[in-house]
């Protein structure tokens, strides 16, 4: 796998690497992709209709609202303010 590809993937994945780590990541990913490439030998395509678990409307959850989680419990693992999760200001 090329360095550029690893850089691109790390951007997609929101991960950052030092140059040294990046070099190792390229090595590791190249070796891993070698295994993955074994599937290039075989010609198969995925058929979503085969993955049918026979779920019908009546199997789905009934539309009944239940009590939510208390806000303090929701926020117990987070930096919070005014009963909200806090992030650096997002500018669109």
């Amino acid at each position: 796998m090329e360095l550029e590809m690893v850089k691109y993937l790390s951007k997609l994945a929101k991960l950052s690497y030092t140059d040294e780590e990046l070099e190792q990541a390229v090595k590791d990913m190249t070796s891993i992709i070698e295994i993955m490439d074994t599937i290039k030998d075989i010609d198969v395509t995925y058929d979503p209709y085969k993955d049918n678990h026979n779920v019908y409307l009546e199997d789905l959850r009934e539309d009944v609202a239940q009590p939510s989680l208390p806000t303090d419990k929701l926020l117990q693992n987070a930096v919070n303010q005014d009963n909200c999760f806090v992030v650096p200001k997002v500018v669109e």
Partner: peptide, 20 residues
């Protein structure tokens, strides 16, 4: 930064592979 500091190497490898 949070993700890069929080995850170990193997987890990061799998995340990269999955994105690929």
């Amino acid at each position: 930064a949070s993700r890069s500091e929080g995850f170990g190497d193997e987890v990061k490898r799998r995340i990269l592979l999955g994105n690929y």
